[in-house]
């Protein structure tokens, strides 16, 4: 899987919370500039972590209840889940090296 898959309010539980692998969800919206800049970086990570982490993206305009549930007030926000539990949050644009570091920390924990 090279590209992060779209996930919705309806499929969040089955796709993300019940994911067999750790899951990273990129919360984004079409009007958000920094989201457009982080998206290609997340796509690269998705290829690099294939088989280790499942990558998803959720459009917050079309799916308001999941962001509300997790108290998202700023995007891009990347949420990392393991076994249905939220293990890490990255808010705002970060360079790739920072994202990898944070992801590796969560995977090692």
């Amino acid at each position: 899987m090279a590209e992060p898959r779209d996930v919705t309010d309806a499929t969040f539980e089955s796709e993300v919370l019940k994911s067999d692998l750790p899951a990273l969800v990129d919360f984004w919206a079409p009007w958000c500039g920094p989201c457009r800049m982080i998206a290609p970086i997340v796509a690269e990570l998705s290829a690099e972590y294939a088989g280790k982490v499942n990558f998803f993206k959720l459009n917050t305009d079309e799916n308001p209840s999941t962001p509300a549930k997790y108290g998202i007030r700023s995007i891009p926000s990347l949420l990392i889940f393991k076994n249905g539990q939220l293990k890490g949050t990255i808010v705002g644009f970060r360079p790739k090296s920072d994202l990898k570091k944070r992801l590796d920390e969560v995977l090692a924990s």
């Binding site: 919206a29 009007w31 958000c32 500039g33 920094p34 917050t60 305009d61 962001p67 108290g71 998202i72 007030r73 700023s74 995007i75 926000s77 949050t89 808010v91 705002g92």
Partner: peptide, 17 residues
């Protein structure tokens, strides 16, 4: 509360309010 309601960018975060 940064990213949890505290913001320095209305165009980034305004739509959540």
């Amino acid at each position: 509360f940064a990213g949890k309601g505290v913001s320095y960018c209305a165009t980034c975060d305004g739509a959540f309010f």
